[in-house]
Each structure stands twice: as structure tokens, then as C-alpha cells.
Design a protein around this nucleic acid. Sequence first.
RNA 1: GCGGGCGUGGCGAAAUGGCAUACGCGGCAGGUUUAGGUCCUGUUGGUGGCGACACCGUGGGGGUUCAAAUCCCCCCGCCCGCACCA
Length: 757
Amino acid sequence: MSRLRFETMQERQMDESRPPFRYDARLADEIELRWQDRWEREGTFHSPDPVGALSDGFARVAGRPKFYLLDFFPYPSGIGLHVGHPLGYIGTDVFGRYLRMTGHHVLHPFGFDTFGLPAEQYAIDTGQHPAVTVQHNAAVMRRQLRRLGLGHDGRREILTSDPSFYRWTQWIFLRIFNSWYDPAAGPLGRARPIAELVAEFESGQRPTPDGRPWADLAAGEQRDTIDGHRLAYLAEEIVNWCPGLGTVLADEEVTDEGRSAVGNYPVYRRPLRQWMLRITSYAERLVADLDSLDWPDNVKRLQRNWIGPPGGPYHLRDWLFSRQRYWGEPFPIVYDEADPTRPIALPDEMLPVTLPDMTDFRPVPQDDDSDPVPALARARVGGTPWADVTLDLGDGPRRYRRELNVMPQWAGSCWYYLRYLDPFNDKALVDPPLQRYWMEPIGVDLYVGGVEHAVLHLLYARFFHKVLYDAGVASTPEPFGRLFNQGYILADAFTDARGMYVPAAAVTRRAGGWEYDGQPVTRRAGKMGKSLKNGVSPDDMYDAYGADTLRLYEMAMGPLDGDRAWHTDDIAGVHRFLQRLWRLIVDENTGETRPPAAEPLDPATARLLHQTITTVREDFAALRFNTAIARLIELTAHASRMDAVPRALAEPLVLMVAPLAPHIAEELWQRLGHPASLTYEPFPQADPALAAQASVILPVQVDGKVRFTIEVPASAGQQAIAEALAGHPGYPRDDVARLVIVPGKIVNVVLRRPDPV
RNA sequence: GCGGGCGUGGCGAAAUGGCAUACGCGGCAGGUUUAGGUCCUGUUGGUGGCGACACCGUGGGGGUUCAAAUCCCCCCGCCCGCACCA
């Protein structure tokens, strides 16, 4: 193969020149698996709640400020991860570990969005049931992410397709269905229970649309009036109906010729009766409350543009909330056989409405002029249609017909962050004290994910949250106080003379170009993936370098919010850094811990250490992991030049590396004599007195060009610097028109201009 | 078209008004090694010079300032979003 061919154990044993205890992939693998086991065994990343089922151990962290750290959860792909996927997860893990070491009580949960089209499509493609494939795929991802050493509280993991979860998605739908928006309540209005609207009509406090007394309206008219106010309602909506595929399609799935992109079937624009959510009622609040959020400006702008200009012509339309597919949340709605168009909400006690098991759940092609048939129309339970059900809704057992649409992909992701707070609660969506403890005052303290969800997911989740806020379930007006968009990992792709992609891993760098199999190839930029043959598996990186090196490399590539190009060759740099760090503390020939020197730090080392602590703290706090790594590499290089590393340097260095490369740091920390995990060890504090320079070297410019430098006491002010300058032989004293002195920074000597002739 | 963003060594990048290129890759030289690889040390923007140095240099042009990669204007190039769609 290529440069990505990894050394075998046999080859390693033949290599006698390599020190046996050098930090390499083999040693990293052993260290990492051992610490991952220990973290799991000790529940290192379990975050105790103040009350309830997960409150054990809360006393230990009771005084700490809480921090709710959250990743956009993924849908579990069947293909497995490439190294681009976990970039954001590594970033939040590094940050979470830093927060724990700076005295925060961190909640960092993780879960999977397992309902929806990607999961259903994968199941269809592989001929298996989605309930099976999502479990399998989640297990694959769970293993790959665990191998990265991510510090999640695994007890809180949720899957949106789990009935114990989607029971509450249905419960939220019922809150929406049983609410109406009162624009007169408060400055921008709020949602109120539908029962209060009924009471206002009945008492005459609120006039009916045509002015007749409420009691004079027929029962059906009363129902239609009420239903017309609900935040969830049925309406005729123009959709892309593709009979050939048996489903409605998104605009993107329809070609310019009006046919389906898949299969090239005709697509018809036609009105169909669909569930809608009245998100437009919240438009003004969704715009106004953006001002309170610490979000990237471009995401706020996208949301504002999406919702529309302020003050009335809102373009935003209500949210089409039903799908004709199988793999989604059933609606908790039935229809009376005698009145089949008016929806009836099920009571909370009848939740969850579980999705029936179906062996053939694929959409079925239809005739051109037929209506779409939801997949659930074919579901049968014990020989009878799942749709037909006998229920007692208060007036004795009657026959009803179930709603056959399911909710869209987005439903579960609109509120999952609340369920992490109380995942086992079967009495409530979330226990109010837990909701208040973790969410107040700004909601999730940091939410990290890709910018591709800048509009829809974040807008829909804000809408759900505001409904829950109006209903008194959520106590903050917004779900996500701070948002951060991590960048994407791109990778070089290469094409040969015929324009065909060649495996990027087997391309080698040549002076002035690139070659594959002895032939020159052309480099092209592209997203990492199968089609460009440039995917890199994290498993290969573990085999070649270990997880700590992979983490460090991804964090060192550049700013977390920027796109960056993957270059496997560059990993060697951070791997060498970890090898040097290891060698400071471990004798790579014997495997013995080198006894750290006991003497105090020399002033220059102390100064560098404390300056490094200062900047690394600032960098971590601002998610600038790339520059933090540069400072730590410099400090390690300095330590490498010492005969023996004093404990007072080795320990803070290991602690500062720990958020980035936690496994090797734990191992070294233990070898330095600390039996407990360093997860909750205080992050080093800088001593300003030790960080201070006695003197500084100031560059002296003459007319803007640096000519020489002077050394002055660090505390020197304008006067002292001017005096030091006057004594320097390079100072052009007779021609100075102006002297600009910026203490601690620079001096600029402005010369007199010769008189124009 | 409209809106937004970006442009710095061979490459990823750092510097947000104050010595441009920290840190890493790659390159070059040396050490270790039978050799290659690994590892270690030094060096590495361009041009000129033996050299101390000098000049040029952050896409191009102009401006503000003692001082501009950074702030302003114009131009060029590239990227993203543009409405119910996962």
C-alpha cells in the first residue's frame, strides 16, 4: 500500500533500535483503553443532579457553578465515522474537561437522533428493520466515540425513537394542540390553554367571529372555531406529491423538469390535508429574543432573514409537521368515525402511542391521481388494522380511527436537551427543580454544532421551547444561551490523467506535485467522504498514533470555528510533542518514571511557566485550542532542554495538557505520585509576580522601520524610556521631530522632514 | 442578482493598530543507525551581499495614522446563504 500502511507488531519487534517504552501507538492504545475503562468504572463523568434519581454524589459539587455543555446530537450512520465527524465533540470534551478543572459542575450528555428519513432509508437499503439498525448503528458510534476518550455522562443517553422518549414528544404535541396564541397577553403575546379560550367564548367575554352568541353556534361550528385557534391544526397545503414513490418530496428532491430526482417519476403540486404548527404566532418573539443570545452574528442574521422583516410582512409560514413515512412519532390524535375530519386529542394517560411493528414499511407507489397513503395505513396489530381502535374518552367505549401520519425528523431534536436533565422520569418531561438547576439563567450554557442547522433545527427548537415556556414547563425563554459553530474538516482529493479519483491515502508528495502509483495526479479540494476516496477512518488513526494524538491534531489544525484541510502527514508534529512530554517523565529505555527534580524553578523557567499558564487559560476559555497547544509545545521544548524536570514544572504541564490529551496526562499524573484521576484537579494558577519580566526589550523604529532595540526595566515609563533612548549610539538626537513611546511595546522616532526645495 | 464571509511563507496557520510569519508540516544540513525509517540538534519568506546588513514582502490599487495583515474606499479572486427542505 502506501505511507498509510501501519507497522505490524512483528516489524516492531525486529526493530531493536527503538526504545521499548517510547510513547507510540502501541503504548497509547494500552494507556487509553485502560483509562477509558477506569473512567467508566468510576463514573468519572457522571454529573450528579441536585435531587432525584441521579443525585448521588451531589454534595461533592454542590458549591460549584453549573455548566450545561451540549453537542448537536447525531443520527447514527451505518457507515461509521470518518475523522471529520468528531471535531466538535472533541472540542466540547476539551472545553468540558477544562471547566471541570476550573471548578465547574459540568453536564455533558450525548444521545442519538434515531427517528426520521436517514434511519428509515438506511434500514430499507439494508433490508432490516430500523428499530434494529438504529440500535446497531448507535452501538458502532458509541464505540468509536468512547475510543476518543469523550467524557460524557453515559447514563443520560437518549434515543429519540425510544418510546420512553417519544412519549414526551407526543406529550409536547398535545400541549401545542391544546394551546392557542393570545396576542393580547403581554407585549408580544403568549400561548394559553385552549380551555381558557373556550371559557371566554362561553362567558361572552370574547365575541364569536360573526357576533352570534356562543350558545347559538352548532356543535360543529364551535369545534371549528376552537380548532381554528389551536397552535396545531389541519390545513390544505400545497406539496410535491410523487405517486411513483408513494410519498411527498422536498423541493430539493424535484428536478427542474418536475420529476423526482430519484427514479424520474412525475411529481404533482397538489393540496393535501396536513398538520401545521402555528410558528408564525411566535415570529416577533423569535426575532426579538435573538438580541439576548450569545450566538454568531451570521446565525442570528440567517434566522432574522428567514423569519422576515420586522413589523408585519413576515414571510415565515407555518410549519408543515406531518409525513407519510413510517419511522417517526405517531400523533396522539384519533378521529371519531362519525366525524372523521375533526381531530380529537388523546389524554396524557394514553401516551405513548407506540409505533406499530411493521415488516414492510416502505412507501408504496400509487396511481397518478390518488392521494398519498401513509405507511401506517397498512399496519396491522393482531390481524386488525392498527388504525382502528376502541377507546373510552369519557363518553364510554367508542370506535375511533387513528391519525396515520407521523411527525417529521425534527420533532425529537426540538426538545431532547431537556430530557437529558431527567432521562428516567416517567411522571414528567423533566422535574422542575432539575430543569431550573441546569437551564437557568440562559438555557444551555454552550451548544456546539455545524452551521448547516443555523436555521431550521435552531428555529424549530426555539419555537418548541417557547411553547414549553408559555406552558410553564421551561423556565427560560430561550433554550440555548450560547451557540458555537465548529468548522468542517476538508480533505485533499486527487484525480489521475483520466479525471478519475484515486485513493488519497496512497498519494505521495513529490517536489512540485503529487503522484499515485508512479503517475502524477491533480489535487482537488473536497469534503471528506467515500465518493472522493479521501475519507480517513479514526480507527486507522488510533492504530497509527492513538486517540490523544488524533484529538490533539484536530484541535491544533486551526481555530475551532474554521474549516480546515486534513493532512495525515501533519499528525507527526503533535505525536512528537506527546513523545517529548512522555520522555520528560518516563525513561523510554526502562519504562521507569524519572524522578522529578525537587529544586525550585529557575527564574526564567518560572517566568515561562506562569506566562504559559496565563495564556493557556485565556485560550481554553475562548475555545482557542490551537494557540494553547502552541504554547504547551513551547513549554515542553523548554523543559526538554533541562537536565531534570522539576516537579513544579512537570505537574502543571501535565495538568494543562490534560483537557487536550487526557489519557497520557492521567498516566503521567499517576506516575508523578497521584493515585486519583486528575479530572477534578484544579487547573494551574498563574502567579503574576513570577510571570512578570524584570526587563523588556523594546524595538526602536525610526520613521516606522525597526533600527535597533533597547532594554529597559519592565516598569519603565515614558520618561525612563526616553532617557535610555538618549544614551543609545543609534539615536539620531539632532533630527528628531517627534518621539512616540508606547511603554512595554515599541518606540517610534519621527525624523524632521527636510524642507521642500 | 441580493445578503454575508474570506484572501498572510511550499502547506495548516499565528499576530485585531505596535518587531509579520508564533506553533506544526514539508525542505535543507548535521548527529544516532550497517542502511532506510524512527528519534535528536540546527536552519528555513524573497532578492542582493563572504559578512555585519540593505531592500522588498500579508490578493491588487489608493487613503487615514508616528505606526496598517489589522481601520476606510475602489478593484480582483474564492466560499457560503437565499424561505418550509432533510
